[in-house]
Design a binder for these strands. Sequence first.
DNA 1: GCCGTTTTCGGCCCGACTGTTTTCAGTCG
Length: 581
Amino acid sequence: MPKENPNREIAQLLGEIGEYLEMQRVPFKPRAYIKAAEEIASLAEGLDRIYEKEGLKGLRNVPAVGMGIAQKIEEFLKTGRIREHVELKKRTPVNLAALTAVEGLGPQNVKRLYEELGIRDLAGLEKAARAGRIRKLAGFGPRSEERILAGIEFLKRSGGRRLLSFALGEARGIEEHLRSMPEVSRLAVAGSLRRRRETIGDIDILVVSRHPRAVMENFVSMSKVVRVQAHGRTKSSVKLASGLDVDLRVVPETSYGSALNYFTGSKDHNVSLRELAMSKGMKLNEYGLFRGRRQVAGRTEEDLYRALGLAYVEPEMRENAGEIELAKKDKLPSLVGYKDIEGDLQIQTDWTDGQASIEAMAKAAMAKGLKYIAITDHTQRLKMTRGLDEKRLLKQMAEIDRVNRRLGGKIRILKGSECDILKDGSLDLPDKALGKLEVVGVSVHSYFNLSREEQTERLLRAMRNPNADIVFHPTGRVIERRPAYELDMAKLIRGARETGTVLEVDAYPDRLDLKDEHIRECVRAGVKLAVDSDAHHPAHLDYLEYGVSQARRGWAERKDVINAWPVEKMLSFLKNGRARR
DNA sequence: GCCGTTTTCGGCCCGACTGTTTTCAGTCG
């Protein structure tokens, strides 16, 4: 298993320090630690590298990290531990992260459960709950005990988060169900789903209705609901058979915009908006933007942002990552749109491990409104996919010519390849063969465990090949299943810029590779992207949507995405790239 | 502990719901 940078572990330790301090009711400090932990967890670069390069000063440049926390990080990097964490843990020796991951269980309750029942971890918690010991504690009861058991069950089953694609499917089903009610006058899916995060913890749905009771009743009695966790007048919460939680909120029409904004998040984005509202002598909550008692905005999100002096911020950008500053200056990027994609540059067929013919894939793409696709089957080294050698590749090219003629120009099928990158960075087909293709993708399917230096050099060498146009799924990660191989991303992006190579945003639901933060770095560096479905079946062309979300989360505009361009412009860009190498 | 077009000191988002409470604490988003 490749070794990952220390960010995850440091984030966990700092987060636990925060929760321990909360346990002791220390004011304000807990939030500082927890905030720092969140920032670090989402940091692209390893803290070890930052510290190597710029020392304490570099660490302090990380958002939410000041002198105190920077020194704790330094301590960890030097000694492998943080003394304060060790001390706190000694006082309350529990597996804090695991216990507070149980829904409804926070630091205060963990403390009581430890002190009164000696519970230290999930196993102990489960045992005590099953034995009916928890309900005897003051402040707890049978319901809390039940909830704890259900929380443990969910953690065991799902690890807590699901893929975007999965959650989106569930959400759209519920959306359709509720929209069929005459009592529902407006409905929106909010939360991290609306921001299109790559994994989703729960589904948030917002409804405007004059008859909240009827909507709530219908919602909690849906057939997929296995448990009702809350059932109030304006808020209900259920668990679906799939294990996903769904929250439903009902608000009045006049609050729709502010509620949608509030429930879309992110939390950090909202906090910043509220602070901005306060600085302007107003107050923002889910019911509206208020000056004194008077509501000045909140019926729509647009009027809300306007009243705060901001340009409208697209949901995918609401991560408090600089978007508010840009919105103040009306300098937000104009994100690539879901309908901007003109072609798909990675498609497999039944020549290798795809399930449909070239023609069937082309027709499916036409039906989706695409103007061009590249057929990019695997190459010979990938034996299990019956990868193409030079001879079969030539045959396939002839077949593509035939299909193109048959389809009469209604869609253009480009000749391409997903050419394997060998261990030393050379490519799996001779240059002479690759030179005949219009779109050459290159990708890694072996030797995931090379050292960071070797892996980076391997990819750089592949990019220097005069025929390599695009690096497919550049980091190789599979969400929640396989971490990315070790890679110096900054170096790779520099290499892409120097060689004019395109980096892919692979839209396959469990890949989403590149990640949003890497996309942002590409955009900043002027490296172009290709958003591809990686389809192995006609239905997979729908995955393009997830790739576009990902690109939008990385602040990509149309000009950054080559397959959002007309085919001739796209091809001449690739040709220029080859000429530069 | 962090942070700064009110500030290097003095703030730090805000409301709903649950469970077990008789007025509220804990948790969540």
